[in-house]
Design a protein around this nucleic acid. Structure first.
Lengths: 189, 189
DNA sequence: GATTCGATCGGAGGGATAGTTA
DNA sequence: TCTAACTATCCCTCCGATCGAA
């Protein structure tokens, strides 16, 4: 992700072309510039449902007849989601925050359709995930919200590394990962 | 002015539509979006207008007699050194210091044998380059020495961006680059 | 008590610019 | 004295460990 500085008027122009709540600047601009656009409205994307949706749904169910499928699907998840993680990019990050965001971005890419479940993960009084910067900021003091790259979600970032790892574990579980995989994901941080 | 976050690819797309040195993101975007655009190409580039820019031109005059050799070198250099610079890695750096070190590392890789000439480049009382951290630290206060990656050399890092550019120019010249190439190198920062 | 959670605050990095020197 | 070059202080932002609160 890159930050660019633009003038007020141009900013307003972009904002006015938002097509769904939480749409990122990238997404809006890509549409305006007629470029390929990955980001879709979180709920209605058919493509995402077909793509990654099945795996997570299967994973999360406790239904007997799906167990066989579950094992297989789990493999796929490992192949997909872990491929989304660019190890080099990860290693290059200066601190835990950078890695944290990269990992969450990978999880989002692999589970865009289900990702809003993370919204239920929160602390005693602070929100940990939300669709807007404001929601996080309002839920505590100095929460340091950061946008999960290429996603419409924001995370609370003002915590120690241990808690960030806990958050990753919770996210992984919420998305239906086995404990072993959740552990692997946590350890990426 | 507003800051917006955009993805890497979109950023590259915008950069590629730059029409003059120093053009702002707003200006480029406005052109791409067919909006009114105030910013025009400056008569002189921004860099040239900076007071320090003039100094390095003056400083260069002492290397006149090297011109013949310089021209020949230039061909080789373009093939070697610019290949050493990983543009993506460069772009990913958070600040000027990271890029500075990366560029110097590339120059070192291309000129390891002669690189110790940079040792002659220094400020009024501070050293700019040395073989040890201590040498730099001792030559001034808060010089913030940093090792040039994968090299035995250290650089002084506590300076503004303009000076870092000057340092690059001087290094390039000391290594025998033509002024045009030195300029290209400086502009990598 | 023991444990979890929050957010303050110290530390590090970066670099513009005020201030100093030649 | 005046100016240009150079220095390094100081302010800003980012991080995240630590310690107080719940």
């Amino acid at each position: 992700m890159k930050n660019i500085e633009i003038d007020e008027e141009l900013y307003q122009y972009i904002v006015q072309h938002t097509q769904f709540i939480g749409e990122s600047a990238s997404s809006i601009l890509r549409r305006l510039l007629s470029l390929e656009n990955e980001q879709q409205p979180p709920i209605f994307s058919v493509e995402q449902l077909l793509d990654k949706g099945v795996a997570s749904v299967v994973d999360r169910t406790s239904s007997d007849q799906l167990i066989g499928a579950k094992v297989v699907e789990t493999q796929d998840i490992n192949e997909t989601v872990f491929n989304y993680v660019n190890k080099e990019e990860l290693a290059m990050q200066r601190g835990a925050v950078g890695r944290f965001l990269l990992i969450l971005a990978a999880l989002y890419r692999g589970h865009a359709a289900q990702f809003s479940v993370v919204t239920e993960i929160s602390g005693r009084d602070r929100l940990y995930f939300a669709n807007t910067e404001q929601a996080l900021a309002a839920s505590g003091s100095s929460t340091k919200p950061r946008q999960i790259p290429d996603s419409p979600f924001w995370v609370m970032t003002n915590s120690n590394t241990t808690r960030k790892k806990m958050m990753l574990t919770k996210v992984a579980n919420a998305l239906g990962y086995s404990d072993e995989d959740a552990e692997k994901i946590r350890e990426l941080l």
